[in-house]
Design a protein around this nucleic acid. Structure first.
Length: 992
RNA sequence: GCCGCGGUGGUGGAACUGGUAGACACGAGGGACUUAAAAUCCCUUGGCCUAUGGUCGUGCGGGUUCAAGUCCCGCCCGCGGCACCA
């Protein structure tokens, strides 16, 4: 027998798999699919350490088992390669970030290759390839078109060292997550993604994910931070403006004694001249704004603030509540103003003590005093005055809260609202190495005013349900809006309605006109256009009627409203831009009608889920967004990808402009709308952009017509198992779910959630218990481990070291142990003889092992799967001779963990095919039952004897056996047993 | 402060829906082979005691049960997340 030389056989089999394309994946109808995904790495300059591959090994083990079980497995790998380190390296060394990135990818790929993974490298993706980011840009444009990507000038987190704006998710304790520098609040022009519009769906979706880890779902719930409460409006003495305070505890409002506003709040800005001591307040605000959030928190409970001289009135008690400015109130939380209830809130209490304000505890709840108990309760009792809360007395908190909210709303003092901790996603970075944001700004288009003609639908009236909010908005921006009240809405006559419009419109319909029509107004619009001579600028058809065939079979009179013959060719010529916005539930207008109309008019069709069915809500965001005229236009889709240009200097400017702003010939371009001069957006996307949808690209990596082919997407999605670090719980995993839901809404993907099962991998720590890091000089390089013990030993060790999801310290000694195990397995080949069946006891063990190993891998309990294999191996080692069949089972079961040695041993047994193509062994449920079992005898709960008995022994027999035993008799001490309990196949418990 | 997870030998860790606590492995000790070492193989390995037996023992204190690492109540400690969030 040859010696086990892992380095030799591992290279051999890796080459075999590559040459034979063993792991190439294709869509195949006859097998069930299984999509197993790793979080793709950022290819850093320092290469892999021994901790990185743990998750990849786990997915590879499962992938290999699933392949053998007959699944069509997709197990891909790629590179999340945009980001700061490559850019910083580029700045320091004056090379293109592309060069460093490619070099790092090469190193990573080589290191991963050493470990024998089943990746199909034909499906490799790289977020920095323009073929890839073309679709990142495309998805962004779809969001932009639906108003989900918008421009903002709000103050955001700014890292002075990285010189870029950051999202809330990019902070760690108020510091830049990348470099640790304390962030500042800085007003900056930026692009923001409206993730908060998806907050509720992101929250509710978690309930549909039973196979996600509890802890990660909890983290996401907290991050989204949904809070139901009420905005209470208080009158302020000598002021026209009301002050609005958000609270989740209006039930304590009888105890409200003051109001506090944030220094940077709108209220302060608007009413500063009415304040009492302006100098002092001005000084306080200046000081407060200088402090970072960290400074504020560091001061802890030390409350400071200044009185504005103004008073608000508590509706419930008539009490005059002084209004203060204090930095413990944050402008971007709630309404930026807080009503102080010092009897029931610790912060309010501290403020009241600091400013010597009145403290009242109210009577609610079962004990008449159920509000939060604080450390300062004692003090409160001493200083506080108890009052009752009238109609709330005796109710529990929940009931009282509902009652008081009803009361406040009924009196018009406020409105229920939902607030989220989640903020919209700050999506622009003032850096070079990222996807260019594919937008163009045209100043002359931005300044253009239009004449809007609104054409409402069946039974509607222009001044009732027909988007009054939109009319106001457009007029506010300097446009003209004409919204004629069409006659005979109950029994409409389209021709008469067209005539009515022509007679009553107060402007000429020409190239400055935008027609917006809803429902049956669409039909009126087609007829109106048929009669026109000049083109209009744009026609927006919102869930328009096309034929009188309604999926809900309502509106019979509509059929008689016109002849339903349209000259589509003519109509099409009367505007260069037709846009259809459809309700994707197709409750009123059928999908067929909408798609036909799109064809007739060569229109753009957008499908959405509106707030109310058929877009009948007062504020239809989708409609509003389609009409917003900001002068920003997306780069036309046929011009994508918008490639990242080369620059001389990658250095961020620090002014809020990216290095791209210096390339005049790139920045200056043509307006896609009017053809005039325009400028490109120069910000780039954050590193997290590319990872929001990469798992879809693996399904169809080379498609240049679509982000992903619909059929391939339907075949592979959703991801069955997703494995990666828990640090992505509130960033990548929220972002990706958000993008996925959006892509679902626009019909790109077929499921609402991307990942069916999510499992986080526990970190591998260094031998000293700290994180592996260059800084501590405790990094273990996989190349060394593979060189000394082989990839198989390392794979087995990482799966054996402990529960998969738990952090665990590395131990090179432990690898010695798994190498010994593989040596034993290797040596067993000497004992193999050509017989078909085992002796009885071994057969049972074989089947038990098959069952246990398969189940454990399925449940990701790799450590116990391996210990089971070790026990099996140890038993075989003690045998004189072992059967070929039994040994084959061992090799098959080991092959997911140690694929190289398995291939080699499989091959030396005389097999020609790769073991990965062989069927996973099946166990026989009849054969896993032992003939002989051990039954334990307990006296008063203590084990006193044990018996080897036949498995089918009857209860009477075993009880007799136990009671007759000398040892048991000794412990009974002659007493009569009170009770004898038999647990089948386990024990007999005697109570004396 | 709030939320979540965890605490078992010298170490990493096993233990199904309550049923023999410590599987498997590392380390340690002893032995075999060897001139010697490495490698390999065998034995021992939770504590204590009067040792073929007994007794204690799964962070601490109570409880439920014939029986608790596992369930309940009250604490302590560690890790992770969130945090002047109204």
């Amino acid at each position: 027998m040859k010696k086990y030389e892992p380095q030799e056989i591992e290279k051999k089999w890796q080459k075999y798999w590559e040459d034979n394309k063993t792991f190439q994946t294709t869509e195949s109808g006859d097998k069930q699919k299984f999509y197993i995904l790793d979080m793709f790495p950022y290819p850093s300059g320092s290469g892999l350490h021994v901790g990185h591959p743990k998750g990849y090994i786990a997915t590879d083990v499962i992938a290999r088992m699933k392949m053998m079980q007959g699944f069509n497995v997709l197990h891909p790998m790629g590179w999340d390669a945009f980001g700061l380190p490559a850019e910083n390296y580029a700045i320091a060394n004056k090379v293109h970030p592309r060069e460093g990135t490619n070099k790092n990818i090469e190193i990573f790929k080589k290191q991963l290759g050493m470990l024998g993974f089943t990746y199909d490298w034909d499906r490799e993706v790289n977020t920095t390839d323009s073929d890839y980011y073309k679709w990142t840009q495309w998805a962004f444009i779809q969001m932009f078109k639906r108003g989900l990507a918008y421009e903002s000038h709000e103050p955001i987190n700014w890292c002075p060292s990285c010189k870029t704006g950051l999202a809330n998710e990019d902070l760690e304790d108020g510091n830049c997550e990348r470099c640790g520098t304390q962030v500042e609040q800085k007003p900056l022009r930026q692009w923001v993604l409206g993730i908060t519009k998806y907050a509720d769906r992101l929250l509710e979706g978690l309930d549909q994910l039973p196979e996600w880890e509890h802890s990660i779902k909890e983290m996401q719930r907290h991050w989204i931070g949904r809070k139901e409460g009420i905005n209470i409006e208080y009158d302020v003495d000598n002021l026209d403006e009301k002050i609005i305070c958000f609270t989740t505890r209006p039930d304590t409002n009888f105890g409200a004694t003051f109001v506090v506003v944030a220094p940077e709040s709108e209220f302060v800005k608007n009413n500063f001249d009415k304040f009492f001591d302006k100098d002092e307040i001005d000084k306080y605000i200046e000081e407060a704004l200088k402090k970072s959030d960290i400074d504020r928190i560091a001061e802890g409970g030390q409350k400071t603030g200044v009185f504005t001289g103004l008073y608000a009135t508590n509706h419930l008690t008539g009490k005059k509540m002084p209004i203060y400015v204090s930095d413990f109130v944050l402008a971007n939380v709630g309404t930026g103003a807080v009503v102080g209830v010092p009897g029931h809130d610790l912060r309010d209490f501290e403020f009241a003590v600091a400013k010597d304000l009145e403290i009242i505890r109210v009577v609610i709840g079962k004990d008449g005093d159920a509000s939060p108990i604080t450390k300062l309760e004692q003090v409160q009792e001493e200083t506080g005055v108890m009052i009752n809360s009238e109609f709330l007395d005796g109710m529990d908190i929940h009931e009282a809260t509902e009652k008081i909210m009803d009361h406040i709303e009924k009196n018009g003092w406020g409105k229920r609202v939902v607030n989220y901790k989640l903020r919209d996603w700050v999506f622009s970075r003032q850096r070079y190495w990222g996807e260019p944001i594919p937008l163009v700004k045209c100043e002359s288009c931005a300044n253009k005013k239009y004449n809007y003609l609104f054409v409402h639908g069946y039974t509607a009236q222009s001044d009732s349900v027909f988007w009054p909010n939109l009319k106001e908005k457009l007029e506010g921006m300097g446009n003209t809006v004409c919204s004629p009240d069409l006659p005979n809405t109950e029994e409409p006559n389209i021709d008469a309605q067209v005539k009515y419009i022509e007679d009553n419109i107060d402007f000429e319909i020409d190239e400055n006109t935008i027609i917006v029509s809803h429902s049956l107004g669409g039909v009126v619009t087609y007829k109106l256009l048929e009669r026109l001579k000049t083109k209009v600028s744009k026609v927006l058809l919102v869930d328009p009627v096309v034929t009188p065939k309604f999926p809900d079979k309502k509106r019979p009179v509509v059929e008689k409203s016109c002849d339903w013959n349209f000259d589509w060719e003519k109509i099409k010529g009367l505007s260069d831009e037709f846009v259809i916005l459809g309700d994707m539930d197709f409750g009123t207008i059928s999908e067929n009608d909408l798609r036909n109309l799109k064809e007739h008019l060569d229109a753009k069709l957008y499908l959405e889920k509106p707030k109310e069915r058929h877009f009948t809500g007062e504020k239809e965001v989708g409609v509003q967004n389609m009409l917003a005229n900001t002068g920003w236009f997306p780069v036309p889709e046929d011009q994508l990808p918008l490639e990242l240009p080369n620059v001389e200097n990658y250095e961020p400017s620090g002014t809020g402009e990216s290095p791209l702003a210096n390339i005049d010939e790139w920045v200056n371009t043509e307006c896609p709308k009017c053809g005039g001069p325009a400028k490109r957006e120069t910000n780039t996307m954050p590193q997290w952009a590319g990872s929001c949808w990469y798992y879809l690209r693996y399904e169809d990596p080379h498609n240049d017509k679509a982000l992903v082919d619909r059929e391939k997407e339907k075949y592979w999605s959703p991801v069955d198992l997703y494995v990666g670090g828990a640090e992505h719980a509130t960033r990548h995993l929220i972002y990706a779910r958000f993008w996925h839901k959006f892509l679902y809404d626009i019909g790109v993907v077929s499921n609402d959630e991307p990942f069916t099962k999510l499992q986080h991998v526990g970190l591998i720590l260094a031998e000293d218990g700290r994180k592996m890091s260059k800084r501590w000089d405790n990094v273990v390089n996989p190349d060394d481990i593979v060189g000394e013990f082989g990839a198989d030993a390392m794979r087995v060790y990482e799966m054996f070291m402990g529960p998969f999801d738990q952090p665990c310290a590395w131990s090179t000694k432990g690898v010695v142990g798994t190498k010994r195990f593989l040596d034993k397995v290797w040596k067993l080949q000497e004992k193999v003889i050509e017989v078909e069946s085992e002796n009885n006891s071994l057969t049972t063990l074989v089947h038990q092992t098959i069952k246990k190993v398969g189940k454990d891998i399925e449940e990701m309990k790799f450590n116990t799967a391996i210990s089971t294999l070790m026990e099996f191996t140890n038993t075989l080692t003690k045998e004189e001779k072992i059967s070929k069949a039994g040994y084959a089972v061992l090799i098959k079961l080991i092959s997911p963990f140690a694929p190289h040695i398995a291939e080699e041993l499989w091959n030396s047994l005389g097999n020609k095919e790769s073991i990965s193509t062989i069927k996973w062994p099946k166990y026989d449920p009849e054969l896993i039952i032992d003939d002989v079992i051990t039954v334990v005898a307990q006296v008063n709960g203590k084990v006193r004897d044990e018996f080897q008995v036949a498995v089918d022994i009857s209860e009477e027999e075993i009880k007799k056996l136990v009671l007759d035993s000398d040892k048991v008799q000794k412990w009974l001490e002659g007493k009569e047993p009170k009770k004898v309990i038999y647990v089948k196949g386990k024990l007999v418990s005697i109570v004396v």
